[in-house]
Design a protein around this nucleic acid. Sequence first.
DNA 1: GGCGAGTATTTCAAAGTTGAACAATATCTG
DNA 2: CAGATATTGTTCAACTTTGAAATACTCGCC
Lengths: 153, 153
Amino acid sequence: MTSDRLAPRAWRAYFEGSRLLENELERRLKATSGMDLGDFNVLLVLSEAEGGRMRMGDLARALAFAPGRLTYRIGALEREELVLRRPSPDDRRGTDAVLTDAGRRRLRKARPQHARHVDELFLGSLDDDALEVLDRVFGPLRARMLGRADSSD
Amino acid sequence: MTSDRLAPRAWRAYFEGSRLLENELERRLKATSGMDLGDFNVLLVLSEAEGGRMRMGDLARALAFAPGRLTYRIGALEREELVLRRPSPDDRRGTDAVLTDAGRRRLRKARPQHARHVDELFLGSLDDDALEVLDRVFGPLRARMLGRADSSD
DNA sequence: GGCGAGTATTTCAAAGTTGAACAATATCTG
DNA sequence: CAGATATTGTTCAACTTTGAAATACTCGCC
């Protein structure tokens, strides 16, 4: 049998493999779309929101970005006119980030290329069984982690 | 059936779940051991090498760190006397990073706490089947990614 | 209505990361 | 062996991220 220290081995493979995968995805995304994974995800999450519009705080939570980081990134995207800022209609403390048409176009162009990279490097080599386990493991994990948003323990 | 866009859903769960997990592991590691995941892994990888000693380049590759980053990190760890630098015996261009006794002690203290976090947040909720899939998926992924170290395509 | 506690976002300095250029060696080729 | 080419690790400036403090507002309570 395969030496039953399975959990540590699986963890190590997962941890290191993930990092390598993400590095390479980032490298390719930059090469093909001139954008890093962070900004890509800002645009992606925004594009899925009603009206391509979202509160800064919600966006930060969805991306697992610290608040100062999101402010900085949205600033950069604003300079490229991919996103713009609008005061929130309902709360005068609030700011909405809004995806511009240029932002949508940029995403529409980057998205299939990124999807291809993900397939080539990762999904393409997985059978249905593996996909199901991935979904079954990481879906609830994500939910749990979002749940403990700041239960601060 | 469960809406057969399984692959994108699994990818999204994995990608977002991973990020959230890593954030939280980092937060806890800092809280309990005053170290970030990057430095922890430097010490860990080093501790597994012959004599706690490794060439800068090999260490950088093992960690998926850009070279300048490793230089900077080793500098910081050196200031804390957890690591020291020695010229490589066989190649005069080379430098070895060497784990000090203080470095080993620091790792020995941090490691079980980190392991506990990993269990609590992740491994603890997985059955053997999931562990096996994880190992089966990410082991080869890691190998592939290390293989393409710089096949530059 | 006004005060105090709480929340949303930004700001700022310190720390970290990146990518490209560099200096020192090594290796290869004729 | 000389000269060209490749590799190792460091340096540097530009950029990014972090965490804490500041700012501007909201909300519940008296």
